[in-house]
C-alpha cells in the first residue's frame, strides 16, 4: 500500500474529484467571463455536459452567473454574495470569489440551492408572527374579560351589598342588637373585600378616574404588599389607547418586585418618549438572571405582548437592581 504524503498527493486532482460529488455548483471563470471549469452540479445547472463547459462564454449559456458580477469580482478583488433564482422557481445563493492565479484574474463561483432554507425561514417568520398575534389577542381578551367581570361586580353585586348594608343599618336595633351588629360588620367586611377584588381586576372601573390616578393607586397598593417604597413619575399627557395594557403591565412588573425585591426602592415611569409610550419599572433589589426570563411566564408573556404590538422590551438585571423598559408605539 502506498501512503501519500502531503508533498506527493495530487490535491488539485482530489479536490476536482470531490467537487464532482457535491450538489453545490462550483465553477472557475476568467475575467472575460469564459468558463475554465465547472463541476457536474454547475454544468447540469447550465444544461451542458461537464467536459463541454470549458471555454464557453457565459453569454452562450443561460446562467445564474452574470458577467457583470464576474467583472466586479475581478475588479474589486473581494468576495461577495448575490441572491439569484432559476426559471423553475428555486432560490440560489451565488458567491463570487476572486482568485489571483498570477496571470490575471480568475473568479471562482459557488452556487448553493437555498430554496428549502428560504422556505423554512419564511415559515418560521410566519409562525413567529402568528405566535405574537395570538399572544397579543389572548392577553387583550384576558384584559377585556377582567374588565367585564369587574364591571359586573361593581355595577350589580357591590350595589346590592351596599343596599343590604343600608337596610340593616337603618333598622331601629342596628346599634343595640349584637346579632344585627355582627351581620352589619360581615356585610362591611365583604364589601371591603369585593372592592379590593374589583380594584385588582380592573382599576379603571370609573369613567371619571384618570389613568394617572389608577397608576398611583396601583403602585401604592403593590408598594404596601411588598412592602417597598415607590416613586411614580407620570407625564401629564398619557393619552395612548393603551390604558388597560399600561395597568396590566404595571401589575405584572410591580407584582414581581413585591415578590422578589421586598424592601427595594422602586421607580415607576410612564411617559411618551419619541413616538412611543414608555413604561419603566426600576428597582434596587437583588436582581435575577435575565437569561432565565423564559421561566418567568408572566414576564415572558408581557414581553411577547409588547413585541406583538410592534414595541420593544428591554431587561437589565444585576446585583445592583433590575430595570425593565417597555416601549409601545403610539398610534
Amino acid at each position: 500500500m502506498t501512503v501519500q504524503t502531503p508533498e506527493t498527493a495530487d490535491i488539485g486532482g482530489l479536490l476536482e474529484r470531490l467537487s464532482r460529488e457535491t450538489d453545490i455548483g462550483v465553477a472557475l471563470l476568467d475575467a472575460g467571463a469564459r468558463f475554465l471549469y465547472a463541476n457536474d452540479a454547475m454544468a447540469a445547472l447550465h444544461g451542458v455536459a461537464p467536459d463541454e463547459v470549458a471555454g464557453r462564454a457565459l453569454e452562450d449559456v443561460p446562467s445564474l452567473i452574470t458577467s457583470d458580477a464576474v467583472a466586479r469580482a475581478a475588479r474589486e478583488g473581494a468576495p461577495f454574495h448575490v441572491a439569484a433564482s432559476t426559471g423553475d422557481g428555486r432560490a440560489w445563493d451565488v458567491r463570487y470569489v476572486p482568485m489571483d492565479d498570477g496571470s490575471g484574474r480568475t473568479v471562482g463561483v459557488i452556487a448553493r440551492d437555498i430554496t428549502e432554507r428560504e422556505a423554512a425561514a419564511e415559515a418560521l417568520e410566519r409562525l413567529a408572527l402568528q405566535r405574537r398575534q395570538l399572544v397579543k389577542a389572548s392577553l387583550e381578551a384576558a384584559e377585556r374579560e377582567r374588565g367585564r367581570v369587574a364591571d359586573d361586580l361593581h355595577d350589580d353585586v357591590l350595589q346590592r351589598l351596599l343596599f343590604a348594608h343600608q337596610e340593616c343599618a337603618s333598622l331601629p336595633d342596628a346599634r343595640t342588637d349584637p346579632a344585627l351588629r355582627r351581620a352589619i360588620d360581615a356585610i362591611e367586611d365583604v364589601t371591603h373585600r369585593l372592592r379590593a377584588v374589583v380594584d385588582d381586576l380592573h382599576p379603571v372601573t370609573l369613567a371619571s378616574t384618570s389613568i394617572h390616578s389608577a397608576i398611583h393607586a396601583l403602585a401604592h397598593d403593590y408598594a404596601a404588599r411588598g412592602p417597598f417604597s415607590v416613586q411614580v413619575q407620570l407625564h401629564d399627557d398619557l393619552r395612548s389607547g393603551h390604558d388597560l395594557f399600561v395597568l396590566s403591565a404595571l401589575r405584572e412588573l410591580l407584582g414581581n418586585v413585591a415578590k422578589h425585591a421586598p424592601g427595594a426602592e422602586v421607580g415607576v415611569l410612564v411617559a411618551p418618549v419619541g413616538g412611543d409610550l414608555v413604561i419603566e419599572v426600576a428597582d434596587d433589589g437583588p436582581g435575577f438572571d435575565a437569561a432565565t426570563i423564559d421561566g418567568h411566564v408572566g414576564l415572558a408573556g408581557l414581553f411577547a405582548r409588547v413585541e406583538g404590538s410592534g414595541g420593544r422590551a428591554e431587561l437589565q438585571s444585576s446585583a445592583d437592581g433590575t430595570r425593565i423598559r417597555l416601549a409601545l408605539p403610539l398610534d
Binding site: 361593581h154 350595589q159 372592592r195 370609573l206 371619571s208 378616574t209 384618570s210 390616578s213 389608577a214 393607586a217
Partner: peptide, 12 residues
Amino acid sequence: VSAHAAEDLVYQ
C-alpha cells in the same frame, strides 16, 4: 355618592 371613591375623583 360613589361605590368607589378614587382620590382624584373626589378632588375633581
